[in-house]
Design a protein around this nucleic acid. Structure first.
Lengths: 121, 121, 121, 121
DNA sequence: GTGGTCTAGACCACG
DNA sequence: GTGGTCTAGACCACA
């Protein structure tokens, strides 16, 4: 199963599905122009309401990760055009977190060295 | 006014209040053992229901930012004991964001240099 | 009825509900990922206000005994992951009680033998 | 200062005072028939309302830890007669905690050996 | 239907 | 006066 749901996460199911497909598309697991599972098929395998899948797909379209062709299905957009925009969003989020660390008295250089220590493989 | 509310942010009012006091306590604007505004007083100045304030204060207690004495008031915990724990939470959040960047093909060193370029004053 | 209320105990109703569900989850009566009664349903069967149930469920979430999915319900966390943490809390409480006994002049070994006499089946 | 108050503990101030004197009396720091500080004196040193002291002293009398002589003051009862009763209460509390540990699957002998490991000096 | 937030107003114990 | 609990009822997003 490519998408997993957590009923206890607090995150709405449709957003969990959206996040799952975003990751699959951005990482290339789902290739450009590849067809996503049909609404009914995915609803069945995930054992949830088709409306929820429908809503997730609508969101993926709105965010530009997929495009639908009525009667034919919904298809993934190529990842290259999306990666840059997604990275921009993430850097923005990290900026907010760094600001919080600065607010409570940390130095920027110390933060960077902490990140190196903690997350560099 | 120490706390400001944004009715259009989507963030629940009680969480906006929690976040506001967290910042005030962590930054030392509210000193250790200083009394927070009373439930009714803050409800009045913010023009919202006392229950919403109550809920925010309860959340601050749960997260260890304040402690209450029924009949006396609610009092701030010292910021020093809280800063380290808070920083840990923030670093953890940044770690997740960095992981997303790595997942879409960025190199760790490039991420760090981006952070330096974007956020170093 | 899984949960019973005592209106004369002095313990707030929402905490009685929390304690009740904690015991049911820790003892495995409520299995992992099992759905708890809906807020409105439980409010109806216990004949109390839905807000009180809501508050109890929120507390269960805060303490890690359950997690919710808006629109779906609230679901129990597995007991195995909780038992160890819960035991730690209880041992800590017992430690405080033992300290009181030591303070009033009892010997540790005498305390242990008292416990054996009183509580060993 | 023999009695210390914590405005953030959630425990009512009058009970904190009661607990403080109980410990002082049980441990013998306050001797039999020793006079407790006057209401006004203690209220002044603790910087709290005299009514709160009054209430604490009433509670100490009710629980048999002190006796008042109108116009003369309030005096500690001898600790020997109290220790046994207090120990009984504490053993009862520990019994409840042990029951919780049994309920979540621990063996009695394991609990005892845990207590030995954790709390034996 | 579900959980989550907010308001309004009552009542309680504590100080 | 203070914080804490509970009820009643409304409205929202989610499934």
């Amino acid at each position: 199963m490519l998408i997993s749901l957590d009923y206890r996460s607090g995150l709405p199911l449709y957003l969990q599905i959206v996040e799952g497909f975003k990751r699959l598309i951005l990482s290339g697991v789902i290739a450009e122009n590849e067809r996503l599972p049909s609404v009914r098929e995915l609803a069945s395998t995930l054992a949830i309401n088709p409306n929820t899948i429908q809503r997730a797909y609508r969101e993926l379209e709105n965010e530009g990760f997929a495009g639908s062709s009525p009667g034919k299905g919904i298809f993934a957009v190529g990842s290259n055009s999306l990666k840059e925009r997604e990275a921009e969003i993430i850097y923005n989020d990290i900026g907010k977190e760094i600001q919080k660390l600065l607010d409570i008295g940390n130095e920027f250089d110390d933060i960077i060295s902490q990140l190196n220590t903690r997350f560099k493989k």
